[in-house]
């Protein structure tokens, strides 16, 4: 299995993601024009960004589960796709090459959840900032 670092997005792709993310635009559309490796890279980058923003926004209270619990359980996803592959293999890195369409579908759903979470963190911080400013003034 390739190392995670093999799936890094190009810097310009990362910029694209941030540009869309901060404008509240759809990230999932990016996947349609990406090759398999970049799709995994995108998933990884979104996790990193969500984690980084989550920690800034939630401080110590942030946990990965805060995001994963909003995601569809793998068993349910597999059932919907009529997939009887072992549960471990139901992740982008494994089936993106053998069943790209299904893997992309799952990753798209995950990325949607992650971008919503990131938006939420941004909004929380925005409220905090406004609150602090109004308190100071």
């Amino acid at each position: 299995m390739p190392d995670n670092s093999d799936y890094a997005l190009r810097p310009s792709e990362k910029l694209d993601v941030l540009y869309r993310l901060f404008r509240g635009e759809n990230i999932c559309d990016l996947i349609d024009n990406m090759d398999n490796t970049s799709v995994i890279g995108l998933q990884k980058f979104m996790w990193e960004t969500a984690a980084e923003f989550g920690i800034i926004s939630r401080k110590h209270n942030f946990s990965r589960k805060e995001i994963t619990r909003k995601m569809k359980p793998t068993q349910q996803f597999q059932k919907e796709q009529n997939c009887d592959e072992r549960i471990y293999f139901c992740k982008g890195t494994h089936c993106i090459h053998s069943n790209s369409e299904c893997a992309r579908k799952k990753i798209k759903e995950h990325i949607k959840v992650m971008s919503e979470s990131i938006r939420e963190y941004i909004e929380t911080e925005q409220h905090n900032e406004t609150f602090v400013q109004s308190t100071l003034s």
């Binding site: 941030l18 901060f22 960004t49 980084e52 800034i56 941004i122 911080e125 925005q126 905090n128 900032e129």
Partner: peptide, 11 residues
């Protein structure tokens, strides 16, 4: 985005 996300070390 609020500056807290980039003020210390950038993104």
């Amino acid at each position: 985005i609020p500056s807290s996300f980039f003020k210390n070390k950038g993104i």
